[in-house]
């Protein structure tokens, strides 16, 4: 199995306040810590599991800044063989179709059986890049996959639908699979792997190196315009319980008991 895994370097905003920059089209990410997108982390693990069971190779592909190499090296430490990092400010990164076109430019022309990527990025949450990539590569696909079985020349993919229902589909290879979180248990990189990862190939390329004309993936190529970002007004009807932690806990307990809720 020759597998490509597309991963994204995303900010952790789960417990942080997000502020929009004065330009109105970007957010101030200076205070965030960045790491691999959650679903992509599962995709990396799945690719390494496949390699361990069936042999082959794993190539990591990511579009991102120099700092994201820490994330890429971590994927290499877990068992991926080599990596390509694309860095080019001309890519219209807000448009998943432009991102997919760039990724296709990296993969097209190379031999592969599988392309894995997370089904959703935690920052912009479009759930579009992987499926668009399959169309660009002209191969079959399945999105939101929570179990993947490798068969002879085919895969059986269990897609997670609403309500926990699974749709099982059989795809011929090559195929693009977008991975849902929870498909496996991502490992921690072993110390030896971390050392070895430093020696593995990490190629850095731009659009010109890839032979992609900028006007195929830039804002002029995109059919959508990111007009503005803003913080939505949160209309909360909640009664906010104030005080020191113990006070807040006690007040809540009284509310629950007096209100007959418990």
């Amino acid at each position: 199995m020759k597998t490509f895994v597309c991963i994204k370097y995303v900010p952790d905003t789960s417990e942080a306040e997000v502020k929009v920059n004065p330009d109105g089209t970007s957010v101030d990410s200076s205070r965030f810590s960045f790491d691999i997108n959650d679903a992509d982390n599962y995709a990396v693990e799945e690719s390494v599991l496949i390699k361990e069971a069936h042999g082959g190779s794993v190539t990591i592909v990511s579009i991102g800044p120099k700092e994201s190499e820490v994330m890429i090296r971590m994927a290499l430490a877990k068992g991926a063989d080599n990596a390509v990092r694309v860095e080019d400010s001309r890519i219209a990164a807000y448009d998943p179709l432009m991102v997919a076109r760039t990724l296709a430019g990296v993969i097209k022309g190379q031999e592969f059986d599988l392309v894995l990527t997370g089904c959703m990025a935690s920052d912009d949450g479009q759930m579009a890049t992987g499926v668009a990539l399959a169309e660009l590569l002209g191969v079959s696909h399945a999105a939101m996959v929570k179990k993947l079985e490798i068969l002879d020349g085919k895969v059986k993919a269990h897609r997670e639908l609403e309500g926990g229902l699974m749709e099982v589909v059989e795809l011929s290879l090559p195929a693009v699979i977008t991975i849902q979180t929870g498909i496996n248990e991502p490992r921690y990189a072993p110390i030896r792997g971390i050392r070895e990862a430093q020696k593995k190939e990490l190629k850095v390329v731009n659009l010109d190196d890839l032979g992609i004309a900028a006007d195929q993936v830039d804002v002029s190529a995109s059919k959508i315009v990111l007009e503005k970002l803003y913080i939505p007004e949160v209309v909360s009807k909640a009664e906010i319980i104030e005080g020191e932690p113990d006070e807040k806990a006690e007040k809540l307990a009284s509310i629950l008991v007096k209100g007959g809720l418990v």
């Binding site: 998943p96 179709l97 997919a100 089904c119 949450g125 479009q126 759930m127 579009a128 890049t129 992987g130 499926v131 668009a132 399959a134 169309e135 660009l136 696909h141 399945a142 999105a143 939101m144 897609r159 997670e160 639908l161 609403e162 749709e167 059919k223 959508i224």
Partner: peptide, 23 residues
Amino acid sequence: HTAQGVDMAPALAVEKDLPFVAD
């Protein structure tokens, strides 16, 4: 923007070259 929709719409956007916004 469901398990069915996200598995199909981005590919349709590419095939027909349509302006596309998700979710």
